[in-house]
Each structure stands twice: as structure tokens, then as C-alpha cells.
Design a binder for these strands. Structure first.
Lengths: 136, 136
DNA sequence: CAAATTCATCATATCATTGTGATAAAACAA
DNA sequence: TTGTTTTATCACAATGATATGATGAATTTG
């Protein structure tokens, strides 16, 4: 419910990179092993994030992946939206057909509010907030 | 995002039955055609809802499906939970591994609140609130 | 009891998501 | 330029969600 496996992998990999915060790229193999995520699958995910501008990728020796900008400037919605469809928040709980904003059922507005909460959270939260806490 | 196709079909079929509110069962064929949902697929969904006690099914002529209790007494969570996994609300945004309640990242508590909102909505809302508005 | 009606179920098809294995292409270093 | 390292990509497998078609089983009606 809510987030796909792919989106969760993406967030974990990015949080991992935000944690390390080193000025040099990290190899897919390292990330995949540390996070226990399938290597080639992760490779595709990171590639997509590079194409969308969240990551920078570099090939060859001393290559790997690196955040393209500070963790504070990467919204979770930028990441999740790449993999999961962030449907319009005016959509009906039961699908598009039954009720719309024009002719809503009693639950329509309440559902809209709840869904907006999810989307607001993803828009307002950044990668920096996914970092591991200092001590633990 | 959020609800599966199956769960949405289920809610639509139940809302449809709540709308009709007749004291007699409605055939799958009728529901499937009116809602434009695959017949046999819907049949399985309604069967599952009958097994879980939300619907009553009756075979033979004048058979069909009927709400087992008043729409006011069917919580959306009863329906959705039958098809979608309502995961524990203390689960991490990125999957179970990264942070738990014991050692949370900065976003952990916020996400928990948002997820609770979704679950509360499904628990607090009933089928009666999915009925079509009187006029439309 | 026989026939019709309806849900129940089985077998299978399609599609998207998730995952694997092999190879190509780029970058670097000797 | 040759070899090594790394991402990029291709081909495909496994799984689960969604969907279809055919048949079985229960119930009612005549």
C-alpha cells in the first residue's frame, strides 16, 4: 500500500548516499550489497534517477553514483513520482466513474483531504530528513 | 497509489448495492454490466466479500448478492483489508530495514502520522457515506 | 424429477512489477 | 593502444494482479 518496492529501493539508496555524504561517487555494487537490493534492478533505478537529474552517474574506474544536489534540495516527491503514479488528488476513492468533485458522495471530500496529506508529505519532506540519526 | 483496482471494484460494487437498497439480491451480471467491471472477476471479489461476512450470496433463480448488514455498519477498512495489505502503521517509509520506531530518521514520525490518517479514514468511514448524493 | 437460473470454481491468458544473467559501451590507467 | 573498471542496456524469467472462458454445483420453478 502507498509506495511500490521500486520507490522504496530508490529512497533507501538515496538516503544511503545522503548519509555517506562523501564527495566521491559510490558504485552500484557497494550500494546494492549494503542495502541488500538486487544489483541490476538497482542499477536501472539509479539510472532513471540520473536521467531525471537527482543523481549524477560516472562510468569507469572511480565511477559510480552521486547526489546531483544537496540532500536538502531533493524532495521525496521528485523521487517517488519517477516510479509511482502520483494520481490527481481529486480522484474518487472508488475510481473515476462514480463521483467527481461536481457530484461527490459523502466520503469524497474526506478522502481528498487524506490523499492531499500524503502528497503534501512527499512534497514537503526532503532527502535530508531520511538521513540516519546521528547516534544510532 | 493507495488502493488496488480490486479494492476499488469492491467498493464500487458495495456502494452500488447500498444505493439500490432493495430487499432482494442483485445478480453479478447486472452489477458487472452497470459498473463496467469484468463479470467473473467481480464474481470472485463478491464471493470473497460473502466469505468475509460483508455480503450474503444466494444461488439459483432470484439469487444474487445482498448486503449482509446495513451500509452504516460496513467500514471501508473491512472491505479494503480483504484485498490490500493494510501494513503496520509503524513501518518505515523506505521499507522495514532502515529505521524503526526505536531509531527513527527525521521523517519517520511524520510519515507515521500520514499513514495513520489513511487508516483512520478507512476505519471511520462506512459504506453509507459512499452512497450517491440524492440529487445527482 | 427435469430444466432453468444463478453463484462457484477451474484453467488459463495478459500485463505490470520485480528480479536475473549476459553483453555493450564508456572512461580511465598503464 | 590495450586492459580494467564501471555504468548502460538487452533479453528474459518469476511473480502477482487483472481478466476471460468453460464448467461445476446449488437452488428454484414447473
Amino acid at each position: 500500500m502507498i509506495l511500490s518496492q521500486t520507490a522504496r529501493y530508490a529512497l533507501r539508496a538515496l538516503a544511503y548516499l545522503a548519509d555517506r555524504d562523501v564527495g566521491e561517487p559510490v558504485r552500484v555494487d557497494v550500494i546494492a550489497e549494503d542495502l541488500d537490493v538486487p544489483r541490476n534492478y538497482l542499477s536501472k533505478i539509479l539510472h532513471a534517477l540520473a536521467k531525471s537529474g537527482v543523481l549524477v552517474s560516472m562510468r569507469g574506474p572511480r565511477g559510480g553514483f552521486q547526489l546531483a544536489r544537496p540532500a536538502e534540495e531533493v524532495r521525496l516527491a521528485d523521487v517517488v513520482g519517477e516510479f509511482d503514479t502520483m494520481e490527481a488528488s481529486n480522484a474518487c476513492l472508488m475510481g473515476q466513474e462514480r463521483c467527481a468533485d461536481a457530484n461527490p458522495c459523502a466520503a469524497h471530500e474526506g478522502w481528498k483531504v487524506v490523499k492531499n496529506r500524503v502528497e503534501e508529505f512527499l512534497r514537503d519532506t526532503t532527502l535530508a530528513q531520511l538521513r540516519s540519526p546521528p547516534d544510532g
